[in-house]
Design a protein around this nucleic acid. Structure first.
Length: 92
DNA sequence: TATCTGACGATAG
DNA sequence: CCTATCGCCAGAT
């Protein structure tokens, strides 16, 4: 039956992020595209914000910028994954 | 059903 | 390089 729910979108996003490995960085738009919802970068941010247990720190903005409002926390978490962050930007 | 919001993306200035 | 504006999508009220 057509039991469509936003849960499908969240599940897809969670699956993509959970598939990432330590040190692997991806942008919101990339996550949305991989989840099957290209252009839904904003919706992805909503999932990260409301979902716990997800490595949200592996997700950065398209320009490699850290998450606004969480730059300090984000940078610290990335360093734990062997990721170098300079000036609020991820070094790749 | 309509309207607003938001851990975004891209472009313009 | 930084700020501002528009556009896109899904969820919440």
């Amino acid at each position: 039956m057509t039991t469509l729910s936003g849960d499908d979108f969240e599940s897809a996003v969670v699956s993509v992020i959970d598939s990432l490995k330590p040190g692997d960085i991806i942008s919101y738009g990339e996550v949305a595209a991989e989840a099957g919802y290209p252009g839904a970068a904003r919706a992805v941010g909503r999932v990260l914000k409301g979902s716990t247990g997800l490595p949200w720190w592996r997700v950065v903005t398209s320009t490699g910028r850290l998450v606004p409002g969480h730059e300090v926390e984000h940078e610290r978490l990335l360093e734990q994954e062997n990721v170098i962050v300079l000036n609020g930007r991820v070094v790749r």
